[in-house]
Amino acid sequence: MARRGFAVDAVEPVAELRDLAERLHPGSGVTWRAGALPEIPGLQGPYDLVLLSAVWMHLRPEERPLAMRRLAGLLAPGGILLITLRRGEPPVDRRMFDIAPEEVAGHGAGAGLKLLRIVDEKADRLGRDAVHWNAVALQLG
């Protein structure tokens, strides 16, 4: 997105991963920021697009409504929120949840977002038989 001229803020809670991303993509125009849901302190909108890739499934049930309200508050009028969801039995060694896209849509509705689309990706791109992905697109306004 940055290569196409868009201003991009990327939020990553793990310092080592942020540092690695900056080293792998020098001069990309991406601004890397420390932060994590549900609050993402210090991040200011408005954004036309917010993308959460493989993030939502790490939030505990009680964190999800607050996180959705925070994300909705970052959107510009008409802004789009895209969330990818890893589906399938979560690994036992990580805090991860199998969250239905309908639950995400419900939290979105509670935060003033309308559902645009739910996409079932069917297969996992890494070839894991027990994993598949959904994407949820929500819009403010």
Rank of each mutant, 00 (worst) to 15 (best):
D129N: 05
V119F: 13
R94T: 12
E22F: 14
P90Q: 03
L24M: 12
E102R: 11
Q139W: 02
L74H: 06
H58P: 08
E89F: 03
T31E: 11
V136K: 00
A7I: 10
P26Q: 01
V30H: 03
A36C: 09
L66S: 07
V131Y: 14
L49R: 12
H107E: 13
A15F: 11
R18G: 05
V50D: 08
G27M: 06
E12C: 09
L116T: 02
F97G: 00
R125I: 13
R33G: 00
R95C: 05
A111Y: 04
Q44M: 13
A109S: 14
V104N: 00
G73M: 03
L74T: 05
R18Y: 08
A15D: 15
A100L: 10
R87W: 02
L82A: 13
A135F: 06
L81A: 01
I99S: 09
G73F: 00
I99P: 08
Q139V: 14
A130D: 15
L81R: 02
W56M: 01
G27C: 07
M96R: 06
E16L: 14
P61N: 08
L17P: 06
E63P: 01
P91R: 15
V119E: 12
L51D: 04
E121T: 08
L52E: 02
L17N: 13
A123Q: 14
I83H: 03
I80R: 13
A10T: 02
A2I: 09
R60Q: 10
A135R: 12
P13D: 07
D120S: 07
L85V: 04
L20Q: 05
H58C: 02
G73K: 03
S28A: 11
Q44G: 10
M96F: 03
E102S: 11
P61M: 05
V8G: 02
P65D: 06
F97E: 13
M1K: 08
D48Y: 00
R23Q: 13
P41S: 07
L17M: 14
W133N: 03
E102Q: 15
W133C: 06
R128K: 14
P13W: 06
R23N: 09
G5M: 08
G45W: 04
G127S: 09
E89K: 13
Q139P: 01
A100F: 05
G27H: 04
V131K: 04
L116H: 03
P46R: 05
G112P: 01
L140V: 01
A109L: 13
P77F: 06
L49A: 10
R4Q: 15
G127Y: 12
I118G: 01
R128M: 12
R3H: 12
L20Y: 12
H107A: 02
